[in-house]
């Protein structure tokens, strides 16, 4: 369970995030949608304790994320290319992650094998090709895989569908749903693609100017409500 309480984040005296109470329950796939600059990435960074809020706290289970490290054991994330180590090859990078999380070599290879369709033969086994030389889409795939190979209980992804081709988007949706069903992991995914979000998320929140203005259970009605919210209003 991830609980955000009375969070206020400001940049240059401008409030960019103001959330009084948000709880993401265990096992939920929580979709965060909003236009550019709405505060999606800011919220995700706060959940990972990468920025400090002026007020309030984020709890992951019993842990206050800003005060403890234990939540890092079961939380995996990919927000942007800053999460990759781009002078390594993908194999070296996955090996580095595996070492940090004490995953042995056979287990790592077994887990990576599950991504073979997603990687489409373009990621692994490219002799001495460094992450920085991969296309944006393949970097995105490496990042997402680096999060999922740790088999986390909490997954946090920022715009995971960006830069992916349609086939990969479909594969990713299937992978995320399967992972959630198999492990019961809590997932928080931001996106501005309403279709993807309504397809996989169990709950969807709309964020605007740092405030969560809608919080919907995805029960079939959500798409209509989302569409009416995002359609251009005169």
């Amino acid at each position: 369970m991830i609980k955000v309480t009375n969070i206020i984040k400001t940049y240059n005296k401008k409030t960019v995030l103001n959330i009084s109470d948000l709880t993401v329950n265990n096992g939920e796939i929580f979709g965060l949608v909003g236009n550019n600059g709405a505060g999606k990435t800011t919220l995700l960074r706060l959940l990972l304790d990468l920025i400090r809020a002026e007020k309030g706290e984020v709890r992951s289970g019993d842990h206050i994320v800003a005060k403890t490290e234990e939540w890092k054991e079961y939380t995996a994330s990919y927000l942007d290319e800053g999460f990759l180590i781009d002078y390594l090859t993908p194999e070296e990078f996955f090996g580095f992650i595996a070492e940090e999380y004490r995953i042995n070599k056979e287990e790592l290879n077994r887990r990576l094998a599950e991504f073979s369709d997603f990687f489409n033969g373009e990621v692994l086994g490219q002799s001495r090709k460094y992450i920085r030389d991969f296309s944006k889409g393949n970097k995105q795939k490496i990042g997402i895989a680096s999060a999922l190979i740790t088999e986390p209980g909490v997954v946090i992804l920022d715009e995971p569908f960006n830069s992916l081709d349609p086939t990969s988007q479909i594969l990713l949706k299937r992978m995320l749903s399967d992972y959630n069903r198999r492990t019961g992991a809590t997932m928080i995914i931001s996106s501005h693609d309403l279709n993807h979000v309504t397809e996989i998320c169990t709950r969807i929140a709309i964020i605007e100017k740092g405030i969560i203005i809608r919080d919907l259970q995805n029960n079939g009605q959500a798409m209509a409500e989302l569409a009416s919210y995002f359609s251009v209003r005169n």
Partner: peptide, 13 residues
């Protein structure tokens, strides 16, 4: 510096 967000968000010693 270019990798620090990732380092801090992950388990690290």
């Amino acid at each position: 510096s270019a990798f620090f967000d990732g380092i801090m968000a992950r388990k690290n010693d």
